[in-house]
Amino acid sequence: MSKYYLNYLDELESEAIFVLREVWAQFENPVILFSGGKDSILVTHLAKKAFYPAKIPFPLMHVDTGHNFPETIQFRDDIIKELGAQLIVGSVQESIDEGRVAEEKGKNATRNALQITTLLDAIEANKIDCAIGGGRRDEEKARAKERFFSHRDDFGQWDPKNQRPELWNIFNGKHFEGEHFRAFPISNWTEMDVWNYIKRENISIPSLYFAHEREVVWRQDSWIPNSEFLVLEDHEEVVTKKIRFRTLGDITITGGVESDADTLEKIAAEVAGMRNTERGNRSDDKRSESAMEDRKRQGYF
């Protein structure tokens, strides 16, 4: 009987598929939050497997900050076409134009926090009762406390001290009108697990994850890509480096690392040897010790 066990990747995969099917069964109108980053691509891939031979039975939703890598948008449009899925876009630019939010000021200004309003508006406008995200508990200390099914009140807020206990594999998605849930099928995956699985399944990901030459600026201990949105300080210098990105966020805040890893095998090997966390290159998390918790409480991803 000893052969009847799953290896760790198969067990994680099976768990994630179970969660995705629970979302579909327990909610009226779920969406996958799709950023074009590897974690949301992974969730989409798992959803494809979960409902095969049917198509993914819910739309993908992208919160577009307007500060994108062009490669990310291209990738998003390609995958939508391939899956035959519906795409919902929430636009931060529209939120700004409508006066719902105001741009941050200063050289490190980003649209990161502005996404919260756009996201919550899109959830409300589309009557979404569950937004499936690619959040993982190993990413950050506030995320370590997340449930698979995570409740949001009618203001979209997370109350980390008053979460529903989650036992065994019984998920409670019951909610009142106006409230919604966030579901995190890959909660138990680590960055290494994600790369090992992407490699095993040969999942296609944006070229930004592979080492490539790019114009960059050294800022806050990482290589920030040069773009039309970047305001240079006097002492800063644009140089060309061979880099790759470990995570993808806005082009204004996503720092790259110098790397020669241009295949999935090389990336997995590089990640295995990394001595810094992936979010170490995200300036949105460097603002304070509880930066992520504060944003999550308000309704962030």
Binding site: R137, T190, M192
Partner: peptide, 10 residues
């Protein structure tokens, strides 16, 4: 510690 926290290592 107030809540359950999950940690990972390999």
């Amino acid at each position: 510690t107030i809540d359950v926290a999950y940690r990972y290592f390999t």
